[in-house]
């Protein structure tokens, strides 16, 4: 490891983690969110098992409110790679009218993401779910082990995490229990973008700046893909040159003003960025410690 640059060290660590999962777990799955981190995960998975195929399926929890461009990208890119894609949606909640405006973000996320994820994992009887979460994203994520234990209800107990020494990961679980595994734990947002550049990894076009129709409210740019996004009296969308810094459900993900239309320019923009990546994600701020609470309940 000594002579590796930081990026190659991170890559080697992530590949080791993925191989460990495949060697030790019965039914692993990769949680695919279509974002830039997921794209990096896929590249790492290709490398880890090359020239073999990626030996686990992808699971996408589709809330029904993802951007259209995300879904197009998902279907095209996974077909290209020849991986098996499972899509799970909480159709019951959608039928009952779940939207962040009607139900509030906590209840909406709880049903469409957390519940859907737990159901999706149970349906496939998966014992290990790999995801692209990074410790630098949010302060409760900064606390989580690489191999993170979940009880039979899929819940995380942050006060009782397992020891995890060196690169020896504890994969022992009883039936019904499971692991969440985070191969990108030690990557930063900057590392991810540099890797995308160096490896020329395909990502959803929403990350690149373009004129898009947005509701402009103070500093916030709100996408209007879903017809139920409430408008203020007389409010009309305006064309704004902007991009997404992180991707989620369109009603709950704000865009940022930007001219960055290449990966290089995004990296340049990142260097001067003064606010964190998830500040445009409404769901992280709906209560104190909100990510920690969601994670305890089983959120990814």
């Amino acid at each position: 490891m000594r002579n590796f640059t930081h990026l190659r060290q991170l890559e080697a660590e992530s590949i080791h983690i993925m191989r460990e999962v495949v060697a030790e777990c019965q039914r692993p799955v990769l949680l695919y969110s279509i974002g830039k981190d997921s794209s990096v995960l896929l590249r790492l998975a290709q490398k880890a098992f090359y020239p073999g195929q990626i030996p686990f399926p992808l699971l996408h929890i589709d809330t029904g409110y993802k951007f259209k461009e995300m879904i197009e990208f998902r279907d095209r890119y996974t077909a290209e790679l020849g991986v098996k894609l499972i899509v799970h949606t909480n159709t019951t909640a959608l039928r009952d009218g779940a939207t962040p405006f009607a139900w509030g973000t906590q209840r909406c996320c709880g049903a469409l993401k957390t519940q859907a994820l737990l159901d999706g994992l149970r349906a496939g009887a998966f014992d290990a779910a790999m995801g692209g979460a990074r410790r630098d994203e949010e302060r409760s994520r900064a606390k989580e082990r690489v191999f993170s234990f979940r009880d039979t209800k899929g819940q995380w107990d942050p006060r009782n995490q397992r020891p995890e020494l060196w690169n020896l990961f504890n994969t022992r679980i009883h039936s019904g229990e499971s692991l969440r595994v985070f191969p990108l734990s030690n990557w930063t947002e900057m590392d991810v973008w540099q890797y995308i550049l160096v490896e020329n990894i395909p990502i959803v076009p929403l990350y690149f700046a373009k004129e898009r129709p947005m509701l402009v409210r103070g500093d916030s740019l709100l996408p209007i893909e879903q017809p139920f996004v409430p408008r203020l009296p007389g409010e009309q969308p305006r064309m704004v040159k902007c991009r997404m810094r992180s991707l989620g459900c369109s009603p709950c993900t704000g865009a940022i003003y930007s001219d960055a239309d290449t990966v290089q320019k995004i990296i340049e923009e990142l260097v001067t960025m003064r606010r964190s990546e998830r500040q445009n994600r409404v769901i992280d701020h709906d209560q104190d410690g909100s990510m920690e609470i969601k994670k305890q309940e089983g959120y990814f």
Binding site: R135, R139, R141, K143, Q161, N186, G289
Partner: peptide, 23 residues
């Protein structure tokens, strides 16, 4: 900045390891 768990902030102590990144 590093005590990321609610229990840690309430009690003013660090319970588990937190990882931070800088360059």
């Amino acid at each position: 900045l590093t005590d990321g768990l609610r229990a840690e902030r309430e009690q003013g102590i660090t319970i588990d390891v937190a990882y931070r990144y800088f360059a």
